[in-house]
Design a protein around this nucleic acid. Sequence first.
DNA 1: ATCGCTCTACCCAGTACTGGGTAGAGCGGT
DNA 2: ACCGCTCTACCCAGTACTGGGTAGAGCGAT
Lengths: 215, 215
Amino acid sequence: MNGDRPISILLVDNHALVLEGLRAVLETYAHIRVVGTAAMVQPGLEIAAASAPDIVLLDINMPQINGIDAIELFKSTVPSTRILMLSMHDSREYISASIVRGASGYILKDVPNDEIIKAIETVAAGGTYFSTGVSDVLMQRRQKEETEPLPLTVREREILAFLAAGRSNRDVAELLQLSVATIETHRKTIKRKLGLSTTAELTRIAIERGLVPPR
Amino acid sequence: MNGDRPISILLVDNHALVLEGLRAVLETYAHIRVVGTAAMVQPGLEIAAASAPDIVLLDINMPQINGIDAIELFKSTVPSTRILMLSMHDSREYISASIVRGASGYILKDVPNDEIIKAIETVAAGGTYFSTGVSDVLMQRRQKEETEPLPLTVREREILAFLAAGRSNRDVAELLQLSVATIETHRKTIKRKLGLSTTAELTRIAIERGLVPPR
DNA sequence: ATCGCTCTACCCAGTACTGGGTAGAGCGGT
DNA sequence: ACCGCTCTACCCAGTACTGGGTAGAGCGAT
């Protein structure tokens, strides 16, 4: 994929310092070509539309439109482009949201230069790259909070999956050939066991735990 | 991490052929040691408990307990172990669910041997590894279905975020100092715009689009 | 046999959401 | 000025969910 054509890359970051630092670093590599820099999303989109870069290196903390929302904007402007997020934060929320919204990678600003290069190469080749630190963060919670499976019975899990998928008690009752009252009882039990009170919470848990495929 | 101690690995797959094939392949590598094989989850858990392998290579399609559910079982049996999923399927559901449930990697059964080795090394070193094919699958949907942002106003997005986080209409009304009726109106508008009918669907969409951090 | 658990099912009262309206205030564009 | 949109707010009737019970059938374990 990067046979001899250099990887074209657009940098979007509202910190001029970072922008120039990155440009300086990247330009020392022959196989990477910085096709533009922008301090805001809007100008960035225009450059992207004009130059269709292989990669957009996107800062996550930007005024007005944040980096997360910008992912979709860049992808709809140039569908072929792949997004590599750049952030100072290793917060789970940002990382997860980036992945969900379609970023191909996420690296922290304090990683060594060669890791940034590696990330760019990997993403340009069609892969995904997440800093070691990032992977750790993503895995962290699982180990402490979620080591034990949900304390639900098989039937309860099954019903939770339906409910979280957007089915009403009645829907589930019909699907499983049970009384609505039974589904309501299961729903109550699930919520009591999990300490929840609303359907929205129920849905979140189910999605987090992978009971419901994210469509 | 793998200074000189070999990487210990447990293979769990209900296909004897795959099991033996893998064992044969892996045993040609000096730095990898297969500490056991199991055709089912239960026996696998016992071996895991006794030998605390660095990695459990887990087939996703198994009778009785499926691979996805097995992830948590292995992690709770041996918290230090890392899970590498092995699958014939590149379905989004399986992949996402594996990640969510705590797997450190996901490779397809038809990848070349050296990629399996690379995956094992990466995961043993504390990283994550997903086959190139897998990354593609994860990214696929975004490009076609979700290119355009949600057709909601700023206020609607804000309210959707609260609702999906598990707040009731009344909660949100209090938080934003608005009438409950207003929140209900917004909720109706959001659902109409998005073509939804239940709170659970609302929540799913919000989580998918990253409006709500997955906790 | 008896205990505990699960799954099923119902009762009740209260609260919340659903889906159909309408409508005024404010703002930006033509 | 007028249009369109957003945000606010209310009305209504119907449906669904919430949270508190109870309870029988079946099953596996002691």
